[in-house]
Design a binder for these strands. Structure first.
Lengths: 137, 137
DNA sequence: ATAAATTACTACCTCAGTATAGCATTTGCA
DNA sequence: TGCAAATGCTATACTGAGGTAGTAATTTAT
């Protein structure tokens, strides 16, 4: 019931970026600041770039910048680009098909919890994480 | 954000048992009814037995029976016996320490979601899953 | 007693997520 | 022009969850 490690890394990364005054971010700098394994963070950055959330600038003085406004980047779409989103929308007991018509034994009890979770993921954006009080990334 | 596969199997198993008129359940019978890999379900049954939720009866005519009243078995304590419960209580971004005093960038936004989830897990019992309308295990 | 039906134990296999290593490519600055 | 600083790519290793296989131990029906 928690984000995958990669999703966690990614949201830490993006929230660090939105809370910084810098415009361009280098992988080495970020992995040091965020204490995320260097090579792994580089992979995440490349993937985020391919997904269109950030843009890469190659060559000397290069790095990464936001490719779209942070208030348009929801947790939902970030996670969707990393994990199987069915982990969040699917049946809590793991059934392939689980609906009002054909519910699992936890279906109705879990319904309001899922609603709250999905609403959180779909409405929270990276821009919402801009907060002067956070010193932890 | 879903239960581990093993936790899902386990809750399906217990909800099947509470919804059945039988008193004693054999592993082979259960794996067939629940379509859970036979050998794996046997392991789950042994673990549940060691955890004290069910009792095993060895030998011919043996099987498993509830070892405690199903209304005393919460989803929470079942999951806690299977997974690292920190997956549910811990920081959503994966920080070791994350609290009101030292929050992560998602801490306050995620708080009400976690509350709802934990309340659900801690208050829902296997007995609550007794329901005539469910034909799916 | 013995055979059959059942659980218990130990060891191994597989796969996806996580992490590492090395080299290729691009680009700006001296 | 060439070196340095950055990203891009490919291949490999590690780890834990999930799953499989075979044998041992226990108990009851006959």
């Amino acid at each position: 019931m928690k984000l995958s490690k990669t999703s966690g890394y990614t949201i830490r990364l993006l929230s660090y970026m939105i809370n910084s005054d810098l415009q361009v971010f280098q992988a080495g700098f970020l992995s040091e600041k965020l204490r995320i394994p260097d090579k792994y963070l580089r992979k995440i950055l490349t993937d985020l770039s391919k997904s269109g959330f950030i843009k890469s600038i190659r060559g000397r003085e290069g790095g990464y910048v936001f490719a779209k406004n942070a208030n348009k980047i929801t947790l939902w779409c970030v996670i969707d680009s990393i994990e199987n989103i069915n982990n969040y929308t699917g049946c809590v007991l793991g059934f392939g098909e689980c609906s009002e018509e054909n519910p699992c034994s936890l279906h109705y009890e879990y319904l309001p919890v899922r609603e709250k979770l999905l609403n959180f993921l779909k409405t929270t954006t990276i821009a919402d994480l801009k907060n002067e009080n956070i010193g932890k990334f």
